[in-house]
Amino acid sequence: MITLQFIPYSDIENLTPEKRIKKLLDVVKEDRILLLEGRLAKEEEAGLIRTTMEAINGRFKGIEISVVSSNSKGHGLLKKIQKNIVELLSGPRSGITIIGPATIVKEIKKDPDKIQLLTVEAKRNGLNGKRKRRK
């Protein structure tokens, strides 16, 4: 069974970057796939990778992460203006961030139009060590 957990942006809005990252990683470490409303700042994304590396051990192997933005298509001037206006109005709440534990989510494939989660079913689920891909 795969558990998805949604976190609204308001839950992390008033936290420091370190606490935000900790809160998100704590969920992922419990083998849940996290759906965060909005996105982290670029520096926080780098911080998330750094903290993930520090947390890797025999059980926790890291994360898969992808950000889906509602306005990621198109790069013309009009699109750029539109994007800036949307970001100004919605701030970091626009789009959605998906973070999953690497032991469960093998890969997140992203095209501007769609997103695919390829999951891994591990030994403990009774597959005798065979890895299974799901789309």
């Binding site: 990778i49 993930t52 590396m53 890797i56 192997k61 890291g62 994360i63 898969e64 690497a102």
Partner: peptide
């Protein structure tokens, strides 16, 4: 020259 940046290492 820097090490490759990854989100997971197994």
């Amino acid at each position: 020259d820097t090490p490759g940046i990854a989100t997971k290492i197994d």
